[in-house]
Design a binder for these strands. Structure first.
Lengths: 217, 217
DNA sequence: GCCGTTATCTATAGCTCAATAGGTAGAATT
DNA sequence: AATTCTACCTATTGAGCTATAGATAACGGC
């Protein structure tokens, strides 16, 4: 018969030794977009032939999924660890921002591809990956709600909109942090301050009352 | 000879009656991205044949440029009018945000295409269009600097980073304002508040000292 | 009632691209 | 030493896409 049942099982295994290949894909996808990039472009980066790529992935779309997966990896876990840890809500928020921006330094291409190209994933993997995003939003929003409950944050804060604002602001960094020559550490700090205090100057606060005045929990 | 000098001059004129065509292009580009969309897709939206599109534009890239132009149109002028008008810096900032978000309501597709696809424009038109962006950033930054000078805003504010944060936050709205069912008016208000005040609750300010305590100018 | 213009159409050239088939040199395994 | 596996290669197919060429139907002006 025409069946070669091994091949499909085989094909999914040798991916272990392929980090270079997906890194090249990430670079190319980040630069030209998924549809704007050809598999030839990826091969050129690696110095191999176009067809040789198919030893490492079964389709261009699978390559995109692998890149996107590395683009979100760890975000949720890191955020959850911070949210369920110690500290005031304001402290947690600052640390969330910092932790959210730090991957830009060492795998910016992956993050950019996730942010800009995930829409071109086939429906199924898009939904699978989308869950991480929504989970992350939930973690951020819970910290905001906690802050409101504890009286640290404004009672009239729309936490949903605040999350979207915050993530929009943070994710946009991926778009310019190369062109602007500035360390992400610096950006994290400034953003945390901006989110907490805004731009307005206050009639200096007598006591720096950041500790929650309400009862525990 | 082989020259048909009329044709190229002709080609650029009948565009007057073509708003439907670029709107269809905007919709398709917004949905699938420039490279992910085919001219066939655009024709399908309009119910005409693929080749007929070339009566309205000379190339797919020109179509993208036309869409992008409508995606930025007016932003700079509106912002400049606000910046050079009356009011406190905080008021101006709030109005800038509102004016920046309002085009999303009636030409969201154009704005989205400008934001996400302008990178795929040919170098020349990309640079031409990029000037509007940079001009807009400058207007925003000048309002921020004015606020600092007048003592309305924090003296230690990094105005460049604040602009990027603010625009990142605002531009991200294009990505979700459909899915989240919320009026942009509402978003503008909440964002303006967020930018000014941040999320923190203050030990209630005695006097709502928003008027500049410094000398005029 | 002829003529130019406008807004389409059909047909197709020419190209790029993803993906498959099948081969092979060298390293590792037995 | 023979065999298997790994990491490529060459060659090609077939689909899809942009853009051009040339025809035409409807219509308004003269």
């Amino acid at each position: 018969m025409t069946v070669i049942p091994l091949s499909s099982a085989r094909r999914s295994s040798p991916r272990r030794r392929a980090p270079e290949i997906i890194e090249a894909a990430a670079r190319v996808f980040a630069e030209r977009g998924f549809h704007g990039a050809s598999t030839q472009d990826i091969a050129d980066v690696l110095g191999i032939r176009q067809a040789s790529l198919y030893y490492y992935f079964a389709s261009k779309e699978e390559a995109l999924e692998l890149v996107c997966l590395q683009g979100v990896a760890g975000y949720f876990e890191a955020a959850k660890a911070i949210a369920s840890g110690k500290g005031t809500a304001a402290d947690k928020l600052a640390r969330l921002v910092k932790s959210h921006l730090s991957p830009l330094a060492d795998r910016g291409d992956f993050v950019r591809v996730f942010l800009n190209e995930r829409q071109h994933l086939p429906a199924e993997s898009r939904r699978r990956i989308g869950k991480w995003s929504r989970g992350l939003e939930r973690v951020f929003e819970e910290v905001l709600k906690e802050g409101v409950r504890r009286g640290e944050f404004r009672a009239d804060l729309d936490t949903r909109l605040a999350v979207l604002a915050l993530l929009g602001m943070a994710n946009a960094v991926a778009g310019w942090h190369r062109a602007e020559e500035i360390a992400i550490e610096r950006v994290s700090g400034e953003f945390a301050r901006l989110i907490a205090d805004g731009v307005l100057k206050r009639p200096q606060p007598r006591a720096r009352a950041r500790q929650a005045p309400r009862s525990a929990r």
